[in-house]
Nucleic acid binder design. Structure first.
Length: 524
RNA sequence: GGGGCGGUAGCUCAGCCGGUCAGAGCAGUGGACUCAUAAUCCAUCGGUCACGGGUUCAAGUCCCGUCCGCCCUACCA
């Protein structure tokens, strides 16, 4: 099976201790739209997401809450992360947790293989250790001391001097992969996208790589190092392996070779792990690197990256409760150039909802379905008197599809939506020009009336298919209202490449009343 | 300190290799229309493309400098 026939997309897995915010949701929605689009294009598609549950932070919060780390993780997965996927209507094929047996087994197998092949060596890790926190600190976590500790670097949390501690660690020979990585970036220029991120990564790798410490001795919430159970695996090394553990590496070779390699969708902050460490790990194990690492931008609130400490973090449900999940998906996918940072504001969301969804697409659906109800007894009419104006709609639909496919290939989700939207705009203009409400008054023009409404209904049929990956709920309602569910089968079974083929919605299909797809939202 | 990205109409942003590139959407204004969620359609107002130099026949578009903003600098999408 060729690369074009299959599509495996993976999101980063959520660190369970985080609080879900719209940034997490943004990544998920993007992956979901890409997956749904490919699936409906007839591509053998698999989409994966999940949770990252090991590490000291989780251990500590679990202890603070008086439960075991596993219980703590279980609780967060069920109360926060799986509900997030429902909130934004994600249709993932699998959900992997790093505490699952299927994952831990793979981590150990993988480590053992690298160890046996000489890619893992013993070394000594030297770091700043805060006794209060009971953990090693990065330089960022330190501040200048005051008072009796003036002149020293101290822990930002405890304000006390840190100790320099040494610990035996196992190291992954990352440094030996520098040239191989550079060769990869060179031979596969779109391995890292967008280009700005690629440049960043390339120059980072050129500066040289250190071996990576991949084990910890100071706590025990993690996957045991198979040949030395006094160590647990470094969380990132553990977490990255989810992308292959979930598809059966080491246990189901057939499925593994069917799915791998993956497109990795990541926030640009963790691109380094995915575009440097991860491919190196795979190379060490003799596996193909990911197909692509695509780094999307940040959601900015008030011009700055969202953050909890600045209280700009927004929970996805705050948005979906007001506007619905379709609007959430549409807004972030259409308003932001995928790959670049984008501003979020309630005002912008609200304005676009009103202008584009309620007044644009939603109202178009309303007026067409209402006219078929009113002038044609709720039966889709036949196009018997076709003019250039009607053919033009057909052409716009074909162009919209072609443009969307081109854009999607390049992961330009916003451009794909814009291309589809040309059909929304064209249909609204078409109705205004054709004035079916006037044509309806003259019995002699019945053929034209039917043709106009048939064309409009057919256009809506195409829109329902093309927009279903972005707005599964509204398009489903429209699909049923058009009588398409009964006449053509389920919306999800419709093939995107066929979406612009005219004349699919048969004359005689029974339409049903359609409530507002995107009801007006009164100002709060 | 080093690195990245950005500064284009009131707002959010397109503008790839320099030559209809001064644009889109929204907001504003005027008009048309009534099938529809007072919605749609047409027209229109609006910018010395951050600032200063330079290269060029020609520069938002390349080069240098300055100012401003954001981000990264090994474990936050």
């Amino acid at each position: 099976m060729g690369a074009a026939d299959r599509f495996y997309i993976a999101t980063p897995i959520f660190y369970v201790n985080d609080v879900p915010h719209i940034g997490h949701a943004y990544t998920e929605v993007a992956a979901d739209v890409l997956a749904r689009w490919h699936r409906q294009s007839g591509v053998d598609t698999w989409s994966l997401t999940g949770t990252d549950e090991h590490g000291q932070k989780i251990l500590r919060t679990a202890v603070a809450n008086g439960v075991t780390p596993q219980e703590w993780a279980d609780k967060l997965v069920e109360s926060a992360w799986k509900p997030l996927l429902d909130t934004i209507d994600i249709a993932n094929d699998d959900f992997i947790r790093t505490t699952e047996q299927r994952h831990e087994t793979v981590v150990q197998q993988f480590l053992q293989k690298l160890y046996d092949d000489g890619f893992i060596t013993e070394g000594e890790y030297e770091g700043y250790y805060c006794v209060g926190c009971e953990e090693y600190k990065q330089n960022d976590d330190l501040v200048d001391g005051v008072g009796e500790f003036a002149g020293q670097r101290v822990c930002a949390i405890h304000g006390r001097p840190i100790e320099v501690l040494k610990e035996k660690n196992y190291f992954f020979a990352l440094s030996t992969f520098q040239q191989k990585l550079l060769d990869l970036y060179e031979s596969q220029p779109d391995f890292i996208q967008p280009a700005s991120l690629r440049n960043e990564i390339v120059s980072f790798v050129r500066r040289g790589l250190d071996d990576l410490s991949i084990s910890r001795q100071s706590f025990d919430w993690g996957v045991r190092i198979p040949w030395d159970d006094s160590h647990v695996t470094y969380v990132w090394f553990d977490a990255l392996l989810n992308y292959i553990s979930a598809i059966g590496w080491g246990s189901d070779d057939e499925n593994f070779s069917r799915r791998w390699p993956a497109v990795q969708l990541v926030g640009k902050d963790i691109a380094r792990f995915h575009a440097v460490i991860w491919p190196a790990m795979l190379m060490a194990a003799g596996l193909q690197p990911p197909a692509k690492v695509f780094g999307h931008g940040w959601l900015l609130v008030g011009g700055e990256k969202m953050s909890k400490s600045k209280l700009t973090g927004i929970a996805p449900h705050q948005i979906t409760e007001v506007f619905g999940s379709d609007a959430f998906r549409y807004y972030f996918m259409s308003a932001i150039s995928f790959g670049q940072d984008g501003s979020f504001s309630w005002e912008d969301l609200s304005a676009r909802y009103q202008a584009e969804l309620a007044n644009g697409f939603g109202n178009l659906a309303s007026r067409v379905v209402a006219m078929i109800g009113k002038y044609c007894d709720s039966v889709v009419p036949a196009a018997t008197d076709v003019t250039d104006a009607d053919r033009r709609i057909e052409q716009v639909a074909a162009d919209a599809l072609a443009g969307a496919q081109r854009a999607l290939e390049a992961f330009a989700i916003h451009d794909a939506i814009a291309s589809v939207w040309t059909l929304v705009d064209e249909l609204n203009g078409y109705l205004t020009e054709q004035e079916p409400w006037k044509v309806a008054k003259d019995p002699a023009l019945e053929g034209r009336l039917h043709t106009i409404l048939s064309t409009a209904a057919e256009g809506l049929r195409a829109l329902a298919v093309l927009l279903s990956p972005v707005m599964p709920q509204a398009t489903q309602k429209l699909w049923v209202a058009l009588g398409a569910e009964a006449a053509l089968g389920g919306l999800r079974e419709q093939r995107i490449p066929d979406a612009a083929r005219w004349g699919q919605l048969p004359a005689g299909a029974q339409t049903q009343p359609l409530g507002a797809l995107f009801p007006r939202i009164e100002a709060e």
